[in-house]
Design a protein around this nucleic acid. Structure first.
Lengths: 205, 205
DNA sequence: TAGATTGTTAATCGATTAACAATC
DNA sequence: TAGATTGTTAATCGATTAACAATC
């Protein structure tokens, strides 16, 4: 793999390519071109070729890309050629929805624990996972070596919970709480806040 | 307001500033600086000043920005100084979670209808909204003039449903289905796909 | 007043696009 | 072979940063 640093914005696009290619594969398509893939994802063919070529020469002149081969390569690059254990912190509506979501496993993720600090929720079953006490979270995460967490708790407790997760060794946080989080440089955060996304679009209305 | 075209990437950051400022205001803070706001949201002070100055001179040398004044201005710019009616398409777990989410109203959005094509769900109550038949969606949306939809349906039906929404006059779609959507230029789409967000972070693990 | 902080300019840095030789 | 499409280069375009005069 390439030793030089790959721009973050390219890494952001790879999962989108992966998703589109997975869909094409499901439909039985064997081969695609930068042109065709670009039409699917709304990105120029030149950019797709440039992005992919950062990691190697995965295509063939004249014929384009083998979808299964490119899928393998992208999964390897993104490290989703394996199954990552993931925890959910917050067993509210959103935590429940994520816990029941069927779309994680074939994309590299496995929800293994759910935490909440509400005594009435602890012990409840969501699918085949039992909600555990947030008080035990640091220890449980440390011991199991889990690196990824999804946060579905109120904004008011998001930063302190994040600090605990960082202390427990978590390196990637998908944050559903509507607040910006402060984390060390080696911890990544992605934000999902529907209101923020909607507010971007109303500008154009 | 400025007549020149504002870069999309600036528009993406404004809701993040808005969210942080709203939080500061809730905590009783009256004034802030580009420096302080930048520390909260993880963006450089220079960039914040440049972004905000695209729309006018909202700060004061020496003292910074009045939070309530800047909030007013940002809400006006983003057009969330009003309440937008929004529909949810898909009454599954995610649709339910969004329907029950309390965080929309004070950020400019009001969920007014929920649609599903599953006969067993139609007629069900979620909060004080009754799930309606997707077959009636185009008509209902057209008549009410709704411009914003949140899509929480399977990827397999997302594009056809999107086409219907576009036909009904919807101009902004928040898409939770794990698929890229094709829409006309005057329709905006934002994507929320937890697996895609997670896959971006695993690259760095 | 002195100190702080804005708004803005110019310089730097980075990303995208267009074009085409290489080649399947 | 002829046509198609990659990988890559150079040019263009756009975004970020540093610096500072203006001024509260």
């Amino acid at each position: 793999m390439n030793a030089e640093k790959i721009p973050d914005i390219i890494i952001t696009r790879l999962p989108v390519y992966l998703r589109a290619l997975q869909r094409m594969a499901d439909q039985g398509v064997k081969t695609t071109s930068s042109q065709e893939l670009g039409e699917h994802v709304g990105i120029s063919a030149a950019q797709i070729r440039k992005d992919i070529s950062q990691f190697g020469e995965f295509g063939k002149q004249g014929t384009g890309y083998s979808i299964s081969y490119l899928l393998d390569k992208l999964r390897e690059i993104l490290k989703v050629d394996r199954l990552w254990d993931v925890i959910i912190v917050g067993a509210g509506d959103m935590g429940h929805a994520l816990a029941r979501y069927q779309g994680f496993v074939n994309r590299g993720f496995n929800v293994v624990m759910i935490f909440d600090n509400d005594k009435s929720k602890i012990g409840q079953k969501i699918g085949d996972i039992t909600v555990e006490d947030t008080a035990d979270m640091i220890e449980r995460v440390k011991v199991s070596g889990i690196k990824i967490a999804m946060l579905t708790i109120p904004a008011s407790v998001a930063q302190e919970t994040t600090d605990q997760l960082v202390k427990a060794g978590v390196k990637a946080i998908l944050n559903y709480a509507p607040i910006s989080l402060n984390v060390p440089d080696d911890v990544k955060v992605q934000y999902i806040d529907p209101a923020t996304h909607l507010q971007k679009m109303t500008y154009y209305l």
